[in-house]
Design a protein around this nucleic acid. Sequence first.
DNA 1: GTTGTTATGTTACAACATATCATTTCTAAA
DNA 2: TTTAGAAATGATATGTTGTAACATAACAAC
Lengths: 151, 151
Amino acid sequence: MSNLQKILSHAERQCHANGSRLTEKRKKVLSGLLQSDRALSAYELVDYCNKTYDETFAAMSVYRILEFLEQEQLVHKLNLANRYVACVHIACDHQHEVPQFLICTDCQRVKEFSISRSTLGSIKRQVEQARFQLVSEQIELNCLCGSCAAA
Amino acid sequence: MSNLQKILSHAERQCHANGSRLTEKRKKVLSGLLQSDRALSAYELVDYCNKTYDETFAAMSVYRILEFLEQEQLVHKLNLANRYVACVHIACDHQHEVPQFLICTDCQRVKEFSISRSTLGSIKRQVEQARFQLVSEQIELNCLCGSCAAA
DNA sequence: GTTGTTATGTTACAACATATCATTTCTAAA
DNA sequence: TTTAGAAATGATATGTTGTAACATAACAAC
Ligand SMILES: [Zn+2]
Ligand SMILES: [Zn+2]
Ligand SMILES: [Zn+2]
Ligand SMILES: [Zn+2]
């Protein structure tokens, strides 16, 4: 059983536990993200699926599927790049905390990581001082990855 | 002389000092942002200008003008919201540092502020540990403003 | 005044995203 | 096992954001 298959099965069980279903189409979209080493746009996934599976994926469906996968925490939406990535913790059993992302603006490679509690705490304090409140702790930063920075 | 007029003159002098020109069209787009209490999309500015000035502003022109105004640091582009705001320091003489933004996802009001040096420092260190590097210190956070949070 | 540069006009299109209503598939109760 | 309701997908249209490419106009320097 390939690693991809293992991850998909794990994801399927997890959905089932949540009372939702990881359908064939949803699996195929998720596979597209799992096999990519960089963030993909919804339309890139449409193209990928149409080419790979010789089946019709309408953009509308892909957006709906991505929304579902995001709710299930299998996928993250990067608001700064209008792109999607598979969760790096997708095969883990631990509960997922709100992640932060470093996005390479050159090649779209993404690092999903967790900023330290203390740093996050000081950000939140400074936001509160400005009389705003965070709607999400998901923070996205435009970066260069190692290889793009070297080039 | 109204406050708006003062700011526009100040901006004009500043452009002149930089060897660029704050043309009539550019002034009008900038005025739109100065008179708004929230971030506007390029197309909202197109509509605003067309209605207010009985003159044709093509979307293309507005995008070019916004790019110019951003270069001159008179305006900031919010990548997280695909919107634009006038710089809150537009009437200041001090040199502008890279700002951070809190964006209300409900009403698009924006707080331009500066995160503390030490917090920014720890963010940068953690980014470096992940072998990425920031392309910009402009950080944008999705928030609720005071009044939207209350409602 | 000619000439090179900057700004704007114009058209077309690419890329990203949602609204709406119809149809199919699945689930679970009768 | 049928059947009603829910969930998923299909299909079409449209809205929103942004850029490419080439033409013309305005301006400044010589
Ligand atoms: Zn994750
Ligand atoms: Zn890269
Ligand atoms: Zn500013
Ligand atoms: Zn608000």
